[in-house]
Amino acid sequence: MTDVVRLDAVSKVYGKGQGAVAALREVSVGIPRGSFTAVMGPSGSGKSTFLHCAAGLDVPSSGSVRLGGTELSGMDETALTELRRRRVGFVFQAFNLIPALTVEENITLPLRLAGTRADRAWLDEVVSRVGLRGRTGHRPAQLSGGQQQRVAIARALVTRPEVVFGDEPTGALDTMTARDVLTLLREIVDGTGQTVVMVTHDPVAASYADAVLFLADGRIVDSMAAPTSEKVAERMTRLGAWV
């Protein structure tokens, strides 16, 4: 498998001089195309900074980030915005749906912002895959939290992105609903070859992934293939100062 995202020696420092804080330190890693990767670590380990740099939401202080064959460093904000809109999907803890729009209008919003039309067949497939058939005319307020997150996932998929980044996508959901959403993400990876990178603090959520990257103090300190919630939880107790 080729890497859809590649970070080489990526560092991110916030602030200057005495107040400078290194959120990422010389991180090098590749995310294989068609894989489901979870990113874990204690609070302050650099998980969100890792996701933001990998997704082109933030610019590294040094190092290289590539999406497919495209080097992101040196791109201005306009070019990065265009790249994110066309080639990257996002799912956050907050659903970020627009209350006045229907489910279908929320899903197709990235296409309208990009000035392109929805491929009806692909839109229908996405709606079907996320379990929202018969709901496309509803407003977000008429949906449960789990259904709203399904809308957000469909919105992330509708542009056929090269990678979908999730930042605690199940953080606002109850346990049963979270498992439904994680099962959906797993099925999307297996069924469409989509690449998903998910930041989470939950070992159960991480167990749905193909691999887990463990961050501590801004560095990748370990990885785990074929994770189970028990193995992930045990590894999480030995991160940071206890590595």
Rank of each mutant, 00 (worst) to 15 (best):
D119E: 15
L67T: 08
A114I: 05
D119G: 12
I107N: 04
D76I: 02
G146H: 11
H201C: 06
P99A: 08
R139C: 06
R86E: 07
S43E: 12
G134C: 12
V189C: 10
A152H: 01
T116C: 05
L113T: 01
E26D: 15
L101M: 14
E162Q: 14
A22N: 00
D190T: 13
D58K: 12
R135Y: 03
T237P: 00
L157I: 11
R139E: 07
S73D: 00
L7S: 03
L111Y: 05
L215H: 03
A121I: 10
S64L: 12
L109V: 04
G89T: 10
R85K: 07
A233Q: 13
T228K: 03
Q93E: 01
A233I: 01
G63F: 04
R179W: 00
G46V: 12
M40S: 10
T2W: 01
R6I: 02
D217W: 00
S43K: 10
V199R: 09
L67V: 14
D8A: 11
T195I: 07
V27N: 06
T200L: 11
E168L: 11
A9N: 15
V103C: 05
P169W: 05
R120M: 02
D210L: 10
R112K: 14
G171Q: 03
G171P: 04
A54F: 03
R129D: 13
L101T: 07
V197A: 08
P42H: 13
R86H: 14
D124A: 15
Q149F: 09
V243D: 06
G191A: 09
Q148H: 05
M1P: 07
L215T: 02
S62T: 11
W242I: 08
A156N: 06
G145C: 11
G240K: 05
A226E: 13
V10L: 08
T228C: 07
P32R: 15
P60L: 12
E168G: 09
F95Q: 06
R129T: 15
S229M: 05
A241Y: 02
E26M: 01
T200C: 06
